[in-house]
Write a protein that binds this DNA or RNA. Structure first.
Length: 837
RNA sequence: GCCCCUGUGGCGGAAUUGGUAGACGCGCUCGACUCAAAAUCGAGUUCCGCAAGGAGUGCCCGUUCGAGUCGGGCCAGGGGCACCA
């Protein structure tokens, strides 16, 4: 056995052995229990760095561990390959988005392979393959036919120079990022998926996701945003603007007697009707639309209103008329687009009332005595008892809400209702590099979904990015087709699907990929749900919610018999690295920083930040693997930081990992060399070994890889200190199996070099012997008044009286007691004795 | 503004139901080996103190025989949502 482990040779060798042996191929049919381990598939942006690696290595440890435990493991990899960066590259570098994407995939695949991941590469696909997106189109058609897809007008950010729709992040200070032209809001007819049909289910389903981080469930809950309240009609008194009444929504029906105005959104149909006849109103509405929508602007934005002159009748008092305003803070797409204003108990209404001199009435107070105290300074949105509210007086807020709803329902002017913050999912993108929406627009038949035998609708290759606008729309022939229904002249939908659609079902396609349909139900159900899903917390809301919705939608149409796709979810931390900047604020590579320093120029060590190309602080895997080997890289990515927190990349860290890989090798070598006798028991080492087996298993299951690493270090320390024995030999062999999921190359190499048969990847995971988990001696803490004074050893399970006697005869205890009798003695068996003086 | 999370040595971080705070790693110090270095091995490493001892888990208060852990009130850092009625 060589004296040093040579990763350069070993990594490539074992990777080849695994690949050629199909070691990590997942068999659909096997008698073993299944385990589906998945990391969020990458977007092929160019090259991976070690930050991506951390994510995949974590999943890899789980996959290898499960495999050794006898599970049939599905651990696939693919590419989330549609998206804007490819189009940007096409425009900037004049390469086809597909070409750019496929080149990136090839690079990144090779980079990933350097890590020695236990992946089933036979299931690899990219979402830009027609053999993937064609099935997605079929699913879209199915959802369309089930009534879960519809079209409506929706506003987009429009760049008038580039003639293109911009995503929110492409709008910088109200201007298009590329053209610099002021962005306009334009209404386009777009496709939506009815995620709101599932709002209640998606919310309730969260409760069952007990293997998800609490934080993510909370974020989704807030995003879905369920509010209970009441909807009711305001009748318009006097001249009508074409309508007799309008509806408002409130979560505080209890404050109905505190109302002093009603307000409409600038987009409300009545507001628009008024604007037609009234230029002043029209000007006000235009003014509202001009304002920015950034957080900072909204925070400082003044509450503005326009008095329409209309009056509405208070539903509980026909003689009570309220003025109707158009107000800039009322949103059209939440509730009903109209509100009733209660200045005393809502901050926005309070500000509005102050500005327009409207009455501020108190209807909730801390107690009856405060009924006539004015509401001052700010609104009081909290709890209390109802005052100045006729039949509600004296009730608490909840009772009053119920009473008002009951009355409204009895009298027929309103009803209790629930509204959601969640909006339907707009999936139309006016872009080339995405899944074409499989719809044809026919003058006679309207929007017609394509029959499945006309799928896939394949993206044309001969496209032109020189002219502004959507290349699909401008393609000379692509969009012209015969209507599938009437055969007449028709045009294709030229919008493509949001890339979140692509990632909403890829995990199903990994599990089952027949050529003629999206997936086979039975095969997919054999693998699903994903047992452990790993990815960044930035996907906590959108991707995970959309995938949950998509799965439920497939269940709804009978294609899949399950509601939740991801049983366990883990959100891992990022890998961070120091940044450097020169005097001009330009980011420098670490080596550039060294050069600049040597040349006497100013270099500012910047913050430690997430690895990103623009900050020039990425660490690619190649040089690390070349210098230290895949296992050292894997080991470092797993040690030190808890996996959910950020990990700082340091040279010292990777070197430490490298040293440990070598140490493992030395331990295995020493064992093989047969230094001394391989005979005799070492009970202490046996116990340490079995405690480590138990702890490691629990820690890997809990994804506490940093603790599992610590377990291994402790065991290695114990083995090094132990004299040769049969126990020691077993401990070394077992340790190799325990590290195999984390450092598989050195484990295989040592396994083979010490004459063991087969692959360690196929070896069974060790089992802890319960009898060896128990110590026969324990250390008892001797405390006086809760303060540690001494420790003593005692046999495990020693009776309380013995421990008490031992403590009382302890020198330190006697010195402190100084002859006085203790007030009390508390004995915790096998742990401590606390003498209360 | 609302909701949530985190705070432990020089650093990353460990600590079952409240029960010996600082496991393990990094770094550092001293020593062995070496002509020397690297590698490796050994000892030490929360702070103050020669020691005995004392203090100590962001701060203050409380519950308890006993609090990093539980309760109340602050402070700091981070995250999510945000004119959502």
């Amino acid at each position: 056995m060589a004296s040093r482990f040579n990763p350069l040779k070993a990594d490539a060798h074992w990777q080849k052995v695994w690949e050629e042996g199909g070691t990590f191929r997942a068999a659909d049919e096997s008698g073993r229990p299944k385990s589906y381990i998945l990391e969020m598939f990458p977007y092929p942006s160019g090259r991976i760095h070690v930050g991506h690696g951390r994510n995949y290595v974590m999943g890899d440890v789980l996959a290898r561990h499960k495999r050794m435990q006898g599970f049939e493991v599905l651990h696939p990899m693919g590419w989330d390959a549609f998206g804007m960066p490819a189009e940007n590259a096409a425009i900037e570098r004049k390469v086809h988005p597909g070409e750019w994407t496929r080149a990136n995939i090839a690079t990144m695949r090779e980079q990933l392979k350097l890590l020695g991941l236990a992946l089933d590469w036979s299931r690899e696909f990219a979402t830009c393959d027609p053999s993937y997106y064609g099935h997605e189109q079929a699913l879209f058609v199915d959802l369309f036919e089930a009534g879960l897809v519809y079209r409506k007008e929706s506003e987009v950010n429009w760049d008038p120079v580039d003639m293109t729709v911009l995503a929110n992040e492409q709008v910088i200070d109200g201007r298009g990022w590329r053209s610099g032209a002021p962005v306009e809001r334009r209404k386009l007819s777009q496709w939506f998926l009815k995620i709101t049909d599932f709002a209640e289910e998606l919310l309730e389903g969260l409760a069952g996701l007990d293997q998800w981080p609490e934080k993510v469930r909370l974020m989704q809950e807030n995003w879905i945003g369920k509010s209970r309240g009441m909807r009711f009609r305001f009748g318009i008194s006097g001249p009508k603007p074409g309508m007799e009444s309008f509806e408002v929504f409130t979560t505080r029906p209890d404050t109905i007697f505190g109302s002093s105005f009603a307000a409409l959104s600038p987009d409300h149909p009545i507001a628009l009707a008024i604007a037609k006849a009234d230029p002043e109103a029209a000007a006000f509405i235009a003014e509202c639309k001009r304002g920015g929508t950034t957080a900072a602007e909204l925070e400082t934005a003044e509450k503005l209103g326009f008095d329409t002159g209309l009056k509405v009748v208070h539903p509980l008092d026909p003689d009570w008329l309220l003025p109707v305003y158009i107000a800039n803070f009322v949103l059209m797409d939440y509730g009903t687009g109209a509100i009733f204003g209660v200045p005393g108990h809502d901050q926005r209404d309070f500000e509005f009332a102050g500005k327009y001199g409207l009455p501020i009435r108190r209807v909730v107070a801390a107690s009856d005595e405060d009924a006539n105290k004015p509401v001052e300074g700010e609104a009081e949105p909290g709890e209390g008892v109802l005052v100045n509210s006729r039949f509600l007086d004296g009730m608490d807020v909840e009772a009053a809400k119920a009473a008002v709803i009951a009355r409204a329902e009895a009298e027929g002017w309103g009803e209790g209702t629930t509204v959601w913050r969640l909006r339907d999912w707009g999936v139309s993108r006016q872009r080339y590099w995405g899944t074409p929406i499989p719809i044809v627009h026919c003058g006679g038949c309207g929007a017609v979904p394509l029959p499945k035998d006309q799928l896939p609708v394949v993206l044309p290759e001969d496209i032109d990015f020189e002219t502004p606008g959507n290349p699909l729309d401008r393609h000379p022939t692509w969009k012209h087709v015969a209507c599938p229904r009437c055969g007449g002249e028709a045009v294709r939908e030229t919008d493509t699907l949001d890339t979140f659609v692509d990632s909403s079902w890829y995990f199903i396609r990994f599990a089952s990929q027949p050529a003629d349909r999206p997936f086979d139900k039975a095969t997919a159900e054999r693998w699903l749900p994903v047992d452990q899903y790993i990815g960044g917390v930035e996907h906590a809301i959108l991707h995970l919610l959309y995938a949950r919705f998509w799965t439920r939608a497939l269940q709804h149409i009978g294609m899949l018999d399950m509601a939740e796709p991801f049983q366990g979810l883990f959100t891992q931390g990022m890998v961070t690295h120091r940044t450097y900047q020169d005097a001009g604020g330009n980011w420098l590579l670490p080596e550039e920083a060294d050069e600049a320093k040597a040349a006497g120029r100013t270099v500012t060590p910047g913050r430690i930040e997430k690895m990103s190309k623009s900050k020039k602080n990425v660490i690619p895997p190649e040089p690390i693997v070349a210098q230290y080997g895949a296992d050292a890289l894997r080991w470092f990515l797993l040690s030190d930081s808890p996996p959910e927190r950020d990990l700082q990349w340091t040279d010292a860290g990777i070197e430490g990992a490298w040293r440990f890989v070598q140490r493992l090798w030395r331990l295995a070598s020493a064992d093989e060399a047969g230094e001394g006798e391989h005979a005799g028991e070492d009970r202490a080492l046996d116990r340490k070994l079995h405690q480590t087996i138990a702890a490691m298993g629990a820690n890997i299951e809990a994804l506490a890889f940093n603790k599992a690493v610590a377990n291994i270090y402790e065991l290695a320390n114990a083995i090094e200190k132990a004299p040769a024995s049969a126990s020691r030999r077993v401990a070394v062999e077992t340790m190799l199996r325990l590290v195999a999921p984390m450092a598989p190359h050195v484990a295989e190499e040592a396994w083979a070099a010490t004459g063991r048969n087969g692959l360690i990847a196929d070896a069974p995971w060790p089992e802890a012997d319960p009898a060896l988990l128990i110590e026969d001696e324990v250390t008892i803490a001797i405390q006086v008044n809760g303060k540690l004074r001494d420790t003593e050893t005692a046999p495990k399970g020693a009776p309380k009286e013995d421990l008490e006697a031992m403590a009382l005869s302890n020198e330190a205890v006697q010195r402190i007691l100084a002859g006085a009798a203790p007030k009390k003695v508390i004995v915790v068996p096998d742990r401590l004795v606390n003498v209360v003086a």
